[in-house]
């Protein structure tokens, strides 16, 4: 799968701000297909984990109510040069992760 995550991490005064954009349809399972009138099956990210230098800093569970192509931003204490890894898994068993450097 092509990389589905765009990640940017910047450190300022000891606090790293991470901004991430993921590519995902985020179907709630409640929406109907306009042509067939049938429900579109739920397909959304369930788990998002962020690790900074192998230490988990954020562990999130998501429902279908997060917008399509999710945006996520969070902060943690850390300096420049560290690594940050973001991982997601959806309800269909797909997952992706990306690693970035803190600038």
């Amino acid at each position: 799968m092509a990389k589905s995550i765009k990640l940017r991490a910047k450190s300022k005064k000891g606090i790293v701000t991470v901004k991430a954009l993921m590519n995902h349809p985020m179907e709630t399972g409640l929406r109907k297909d306009k042509k067939t009138g049938k429900l579109i099956a739920a397909h959304h990210i369930q788990q998002v984990t962020a690790k900074a230098d192998d230490k988990t800093v954020l562990d999130a569970v998501w429902g279908g109510a997060i917008s399509k192509n999710p945006y996520l931003s969070f902060k943690y204490s850390g300096g420049k040069g560290g690594s940050i890894t973001l991982f997601w898994a959806d309800n269909k068993g797909k997952s992706d992760s990306v690693m970035g450097k803190v600038k």
């Binding site: 409640l30 954020l58 562990d59 109510a65 997060i66 917008s67 999710p70 969070f74 204490s77």
Partner: peptide
């Protein structure tokens, strides 16, 4: 989001990170 059919949107477990989360919801 109280008015949604299923109100729970997301839950973020923070571990040593700052108490700050930003995202987009439906």
């Amino acid at each position: 989001s109280e008015s949604n059919a299923s109100p729970l949107v997301a839950s973020f477990k923070l571990d040593g990170s700052q108490a700050y989360v930003s995202t987009r919801i439906k």
